[in-house]
Simulated assay, not measured.
Amino acid sequence: MRRRHHFHIDHLGHSVSATVQTGRTSVVEVLIDGKETGHVTTSRDRTVAVAVELPTDPPTPVSVRATPGPGVPRCVCEFHGGEQHVMSPRPY
């Protein structure tokens, strides 16, 4: 059975959202300011990292690390310099 889980964080005035769709294969989509900028498919509960950039001047590299399972999915946003922030789940 497939389920969608949504996560969000704001950083440097930009919106970073992630959707994790679980099931036989997991799909992770990352949106920056509402535009899809990263997409990856993985098997089962394997943790994946999606590299994207915030549209700042110069662009800021960001990595969204998603863990589809076991249990409830989790997402962490990793910024340049090793700074990490847990992304808040969104109920929609």
Results as ranks from 00 to 15, higher is better:
Pro73Gly: 08
Glu36Asn: 08
Thr67Cys: 02
Pro91Lys: 12
Arg4Trp: 03
Arg74Trp: 03
Ala49Pro: 03
Gly82Ser: 11
Arg74Met: 10
His39Tyr: 09
His85Pro: 04
Asp45Ser: 08
Glu29Asp: 15
Thr60Phe: 11
Thr42Val: 14
Thr67His: 01
Gly23Ile: 03
Gln21Gly: 13
Leu54Gln: 07
Pro68Lys: 05
Leu12Phe: 11
Val52Ser: 02
Thr42Phe: 07
Pro55Leu: 06
Glu29Asn: 14
Gly34Lys: 02
Gly82Arg: 03
Gly23Met: 05
His80Asp: 10
Thr60Gln: 13
Leu12His: 12
Pro91Cys: 11
Met87His: 10
Ala66Leu: 03
Val72Pro: 05
Ala51Trp: 01
Asp57Ser: 14
Val28Thr: 12
Cys77Arg: 06
Leu12Pro: 00
Arg3Ala: 13
Met87Arg: 08
Asp33Lys: 01
His5Ser: 15
Ser15Leu: 05
Asp10Gln: 03
Ala66Arg: 03
Arg2Tyr: 05
Val50Leu: 11
Val72Ala: 06
Gln21Trp: 02
Arg90Ser: 14
Asp57Gln: 14
Glu53Tyr: 11
Arg4Phe: 05
Arg90Trp: 01
Val52Glu: 01
Met87Ala: 11
Ile9Asn: 06
Met1Pro: 10
Val52Arg: 00
Ile9Ser: 08
Pro73Ser: 06
Thr42Lys: 03
Val64Thr: 02
Glu29Ala: 13
Ala49Cys: 00
Phe79Asp: 05
Leu31Phe: 14
Ala51Val: 01
Arg44Asn: 07
Pro59His: 07
Arg24Ser: 15
Val72Ile: 13
His8Gln: 12
Arg90Leu: 13
Leu12Thr: 03
Thr60Tyr: 12
Phe79Met: 13
His14Met: 09
Thr25Arg: 10
Arg90Lys: 10
Thr25Asn: 11
Val62Ala: 12
Val72Leu: 10
Val20Ala: 03
His8Gly: 07
Ala66Met: 04
Gln21Phe: 03
His11Tyr: 15
Thr47Gly: 02
Ser17Ala: 13
Pro70Cys: 06
Thr25Gly: 08
Val86Lys: 02
His6Glu: 06
His39Gln: 06
Met1His: 07
Ala66Pro: 00
Glu83Cys: 09
Cys77Thr: 14
Gly81Asp: 13
Thr67Ser: 10
Asp33Arg: 00
Thr25Met: 11
Thr42Asn: 02
Ser88Ala: 15
Ser17Thr: 10
Met1Thr: 12
Pro73Ile: 10
Tyr92Glu: 15
Thr47Ser: 10
Thr42Arg: 09
Gly71Met: 11
Val64Ser: 00
Thr25Lys: 07
Gln84Cys: 13
Gln84Asn: 04
Cys77Met: 15
Ala51Thr: 09
Pro89Asn: 04
Gly13Val: 04
